[in-house]
Structure formats: structure tokens, C-alpha cells
Design a protein around this nucleic acid. Structure first.
Length: 439
RNA sequence: GCCUUGGUAGUAUAGUACGGCCUAGUAUAAGCGGCUGUCGCCCGCUAGACCCGGGUUCGAAUCCCGGCCAAGGCGCCA
């Protein structure tokens, strides 16, 4: 059987756009064979495209020889075009079917696929990721990444409206931006360089000129973590704003989250249904808990944490049950946050850093930044970082650094809550983790 | 990095406590044949697997040791 050429094919409708209103009309559909049910005298082909599925019905005695032989030849995952007449009938899943006049075969596929694309025998995450290109064809996965798209769309639109400029900072850097986290090293023309773990230092410098900036892009952490919420390469949505503080950027963040939820809710109704997830639009302002309050709450639950310590995952899970939606944790101990987070001037042991939590997972972290060079150097030393390796960054503070603040959303973590998925690898197209570098 | 659990056809699993009845069962996918209203179609037939290496034993999918791989948890973080 010869493969047909695409040149004569032009799609008139996506599967989802076909309705009973088109009864009797001719449509041309393009997509993939998802399933074939052959009953002998009649054959049903379920055609899939990115919008959904549609039933092609082939009564053996009522179609031409060419249609019959093409439909004999097709297998699951073959790319085809189908030109045919829409026919209303109660016997088909969506109330209509398409009776083909012409089928073109545009591409083939191997017969024994590594995953069951109909979902009758679900594969585990490892097998799915090994065959990710095929896995992504599932209705569920199309729904996940459609939702992620509309989340980013809402973020971009809102930030544009608020006067933010979208920027692109380097991924290849000479030294650690924050210290602490492990970096991937790369050979840069014989010199050691690193993959950026965050745009932090660059976005701070940019507020001196562009005032309000944001960036959406991948960052890299060589942490040896093995959890359902960590990736070695993840997408960060970063903003930084001049002449603002943590209170200001928290208010902005609430609006961003609200916009995301409402955009996804209105544009992704079907996707949410497919994922069996409901999304509430959170009311703002979000609850603000101080670190001290969190410690008190946890004490009541029988969990004791020394002041100044980070909150362990086990405790966060308990906290997530007490506050099962979005909430901020503010006024962190200065030493538990990165060196660039601004301490309160009256109580310097606490800082203007915050985390936005969703249940027990940290979705966003941010804060007011230190704008004074001397204080920044002091904080670097306190964190046992060498100010010398930050000299280019520190110099920027001599050129008119305004007070500023910002935050960073973990896009995959945000997508997890939007889609109801509990494994971050489900919401990353090609996840990179401690043990996975392919595909 | 540490801890726990696991690795059986393309996929998903049963069998492992107490070694023999496992010539390794089932579902689904695949191949062939049949069927005019399926929608997890149905029916018949065919083919397909015990992670690798060593050990114990008359006998190992099953027990022991080593390795590799995975999932989950912790620490760390977005």
C-alpha cells in the first residue's frame, strides 16, 4: 500500500468541532487511528486529533473499494485523512458519525506499540516515560499540557498588562548564584562554567534599568533528590520589580494565581473533566501565616521545631491539612533564606522572605531583596560565600540599585495543582531527574 | 547521599510466607480466521516472560550473596 501525499489534503474541521449541526455536510478530518472495531460487515475507526476523537463508520457494502482497502490496511497510530459525510445517529458515541468517501494514509506506525494507547492496561510511569512521545498522545496528557499552556498564557498576559518586560538571562554562568544548591558544570571553551540554577542575580540587576521584568524558562539543579516534586531541569516563572517590597509582590502574586485559576477554569473545562479535577478560583487575599504562627500550629499538633530551623516535609504535610489551599508563610528566620533576602531592620533575625504554599507543597518563593551593598556582603559572609566570586554582581549595587522585590513560581508544581497530578514528572514533557536523561 | 519496597511476555499482573503439583496462570496488546451497530465489541486459534552473575540443593521464578535498574520516602528545594 502506497503512502498518500499530504499536498491534496486540507483539514476542514478538528474532531471536536464536528457537531450534529453539520449533518449531511462533507468534512475532511486529519488525525490518527486510535482504535479499530471490526464487526465483519461494519467497521468502526476511532480517529483522534489534538482536540479529541470522532467515530468513522464504514459499512462494508456501502463504501467504495478504495475506502474499503485503505480501511483494511490501517492500524493503530497510522496518520490518516478522512473525507466524508457527517451523519446524525443515536447509535454512535457523540450522536453522529462520519461515513467516508475517501481515506488517505499519511503515515504508518509499528503494530506492537510499547504502551496501550486506549488505556485498558495502564503502564507505570517508567514505561510511559521511556516511550514518552507515544505517551504524550493520550487524551490525559494532551489535557495536562493544554492546561499548562493556558496557565502560562494567563501569567504572561497579566504581567504584560502590569507593565512587565519579558527578558532572557544567561543559562551559562561563571559561578553559583545562590550557593548551597549543587550546580551542573559545563566545559566552556576549556573553562569551567555552570548551568544557571536561577536568574536571581541578573533579574535583580535588570530592575535598575527595566524596572519590572519577568522570565519564563528552564533552570538546573544538580540535587540528588528523589521525590515526586523535584526535577533536575524545571521551568521557573521569575519576576523582579523595582520600588517594591515583599508586600507589593505578594499582592501581585495573588492576582497572578487568581488569573491563572480563572483562565484555566474558563478555557480548559474539558481538560479538567478529562483529568477528573476541579479547580476553585481562590479568594484573595490568601491567608498569611508568619513562621512563628506555623511553629505554634505545629506545636499544637505535637510537632516541635526549634526556632530558626527549616520546616521538615513531614511537618509541612500536617500544615497542609490545617490549611488545604493557598497560604503564605512570611517572616522567616533570616538564616534559613538565601543571602539576598532582606532582613527586617528592627528585627534582623527575621526577614522579608515568603513562600506561597499550596497544601504542603511550596509553589513560589520570594521576598524583598537587599539593596545595600554592605549588607549584602555581610550576608554573603554569614552564609560562608565568598564575596569575591560575586564581584560583578556586587558592582551593580554601586550604580543605583533601587529597593526591589520578586518571586519565582515553579511552573511544574503549579501545573500539578491545576491538573491534580501528584508526580511532577507527569507534568513535564520530557522530565529530567536524578536517573533520567532520556528521552 | 541515606532508608524502604520491588524487578515475571509489548503492557499490567498472579505465583515467592513454607523450594517440587509452574510443562509459569490471567487480562490486555500483537498475528490469523469469523461476525452489520460497536463504543473496554464479541468468539476461536497462534506466538510471546521469571533483570544479570555467583552460591545452597537431587531440584530455584521462589532461599542466600554481589551487581544493575526502578518506584516511594527523607534531607534539600521551585
Amino acid at each position: 500500500m502506497k503512502i498518500d501525499t499530504i499536498s491534496e489534503v486540507s483539514r476542514t474541521h478538528f474532531s471536536y468541532d464536528v457537531t450534529t449541526k453539520l449533518n449531511g455536510k462533507e468534512v475532511t478530518l486529519v488525525g490518527w487511528v486510535q482504535e479499530i472495531r471490526d464487526l465483519g460487515g461494519i467497521r468502526f475507526i476511532i480517529l483522534q486529533d489534538k482536540t479529541g476523537t470522532i467515530q468513522i463508520t464504514i459499512p462494508r457494502k456501502k463504501v467504495g473499494n478504495d475506502v474499503l482497502s485503505k480501511s483494511d490496511f490501517v492500524q493503530k497510530r497510522y496518520s490518516v485523512s478522512v473525507k466524508g459525510i457527517v451523519k446524525e445517529t443515536k447509535m454512535s458515541p457523540r450522536g453522529f458519525e462520519v461515513i467516508p468517501n475517501e481515506i488517505k494514509i499519511l503515515g504508518t506506525a509499528e503494530t506492537q506499540l510499547p504502551l496501550d494507547i486506549t488505556g485498558k492496561t495502564p503502564a507505570n510511569i517508567e514505561a510511559r516515560l521511556d516511550a514518552r512521545a507515544l505517551d504524550l498522545c493520550s487524551e490525559q496528557n494532551v489535557a495536562i499540557f493544554t492546561i499548562q499552556h493556558h496557565a502560562v498564557e494567563a501569567i504572561r498576559n497579566f504581567l504584560f498588562k502590569e507593565g512587565f518586560l519579558e527578558v532572557h538571562t544567561p543559562r551559562i554562568i561563571a559561578s553559583a548564584t545562590e550557593g548551597g544548591a549543587e550546580l551542573f558544570s559545563v566545559d566552556y571553551f576549556g573553562e569551567e562554567a555552570f548551568l544557571a540554577q536561577s536568574p536571581q542575580l541578573y533579574k535583580e540587576q535588570l530592575v535598575m534599568s527595566l524596572e519590572k521584568v519577568f522570565e519564563v524558562g528552564p533552570f538546573f539543579r544538580a540535587e540528588d533528590s528523589h521525590t515526586r516534586r523535584h526535577l533536575s531541569e524545571f521551568i521557573s516563572v521569575d519576576i523582579e520589580q523595582a520600588f517594591s517590597d515583599s508586600i507589593g509582590v505578594m499582592k501581585l502574586l495573588e492576582k497572578v494565581i487568581e488569573q491563572v485559576c480563572s483562565n484555566v477554569n474558563t478555557k480548559c473545562k474539558r481538560e479538567l473533566e478529562i483529568l477528573n479535577n476541579t479547580l476553585e478560583i481562590p479568594s484573595i487575599p490568601f491567608k498569611r501565616l508568619t513562621y512563628d504562627q506555623v511553629l505554634l500550629d505545629l506545636k499544637k499538633e505535637g510537632i516541635k521545631i526549634e526556632w530558626g530551623e527549616d520546616i521538615p516535609t513531614e511537618a509541612l504535610r500536617v500544615l497542609g491539612k490545617l490549611y488545604p489551599q493557598f497560604y503564605f508563610i512570611t517572616e522567616w528566620p533570616t538564616n534559613s533564606k538565601a543571602f539576598y533576602i532582606k532582613p527586617y531592620s528592627d528585627t534582623p533575625e527575621k526577614c522579608e522572605g515568603f513562600d506561597l504554599m499550596w497544601k504542603w507543597i511550596e509553589i513560589v518563593s520570594g521576598g524583598s531583596r537587599i539593596a545595600r551593598k554592605e549588607l549584602l556582603i555581610e550576608r554573603l559572609k554569614r552564609k560562608e560565600l565568598n564575596p569575591e566570586s560575586f564581584k560583578h554582581h556586587l558592582r551593580a549595587f554601586d550604580y543605583g540599585m533601587p529597593p526591589h522585590a520578586g518571586w519565582a513560581i515553579g511552573l511544574e508544581r503549579l501545573t500539578m495543582l491545576l491538573t491534580g497530578k501528584e508526580n511532577i514528572r507527569e507534568v513535564s514533557l520530557y522530565p529530567r531527574d536524578r536517573t533520567r536523561l532520556t528521552p
